[in-house]
């Protein structure tokens, strides 16, 4: 079984709003780079499937060569190989077309996983585009995956509960975070072993962008001013809070 996980290297998504800065309409380059929040859930899911079904796991990323040391974490987690398509575009179509091209370079793929959205552009679009370009079904928000008698059985989280779906053949699944796919922390020996795992690089494919004009990117101003309530007397604090909530007609 050959599983592919798509992963993107993004600026530190844990930078607090108050410290966040833009440069040329994108996150300032000074922020640490890391694998996307949800991409790590997809990687963990991929490693678990690889272990369960004795398969192989290839990680595909679209980004710059500087991303390779960051992506080695995916190899340390248990992926077998990294395929990087070099490119810098933020355009969802361009990212998708290049990821599709990389998937097609592989001989056989049984399942493609991706995080539910990147942790920078937050679009949640690229994986669905890749699926459509490859002619595969796309199922978002997947929380668990099983393979049984040639059929995939997956759970999809919806706004009202869980949907159980089944399909045969290859599909692209976006993975949501659940307790079962919290990313493992690689052991030191796995970090060293990852340095010897293969990393292939592909030149990007020329393709058109989405016909959109980005007019501006701005940091919204926070207007909330917090009033801290004294906590020397908790009973009094609770009564004061409820009184203020009523006075300001919130309750």
């Amino acid at each position: 079984m050959h599983i592919v996980a798509l992963a993107k290297v993004v600026p530190d998504y844990e930078v607090p709003s108050g410290d966040f800065e833009l440069a040329n309409n994108r996150a300032h380059a000074r922020y640490k780079r890391m694998i996307g929040l949800y991409d790590e859930n997809a990687l963990e899911t991929g490693v678990q499937l690889k272990e369960k079904y004795s398969g192989t796991l290839t990680v595909i990323s679209y980004g710059t060569e500087d991303d390779v040391p960051v992506l080695r974490k995916a190899l340390a987690m248990g992926a077998d190989k990294l395929l990087l398509v070099t490119g810098k575009s933020d355009d969802a179509f361009v990212s998708a077309a290049n990821l599709k091209m990389a998937v097609q370079k592989l001989e056989h793929v049984d399942l493609i996983l991706a995080g539910q959205q990147s942790a920078d552009m937050d679009r949640g679009l690229v994986h669905g585009m890749v699926a459509q370009m490859l002619g595969h079904p796309f199922i978002p928000q997947v929380s668990s995956i099983e393979h049984d008698s040639g059929q995939w059985k997956v759970d999809q989280i919806t706004e009202t509960g869980v949907r159980k779906l089944a399909f045969t053949g290859t599909a692209l699944l976006s993975i949501t975070s659940v307790p079962g796919n919290i990313p493992r922390i690689p052991a030191v020996r796995d970090i060293f072993a990852a340095k010897k795992k293969p990393v292939d690089k592909l030149a990007p494919e020329g393709c058109g962008q989405m016909d959109l004009t980005e007019l501006s990117v701005e940091i919204p101003k926070l207007t909330s001013i917090c009033e801290f309530l004294p906590v020397d007397d908790f009973s009094s604090m609770a009564k004061t809070l409820l009184r203020k909530l009523k006075e300001e007609r919130y309750i």
């Binding site: 179509f93 796309f138 976006s174 016909d211």
Partner: peptide, 19 residues
């Protein structure tokens, strides 16, 4: 939502449309 996300990217490719 889960439903809208399942369609947005694939429709954009199917229609060669911005999303």
């Amino acid at each position: 939502t889960t439903f809208g996300t399942s369609l947005a990217g694939p429709l954009a490719v199917g229609l060669s449309a911005p999303v």
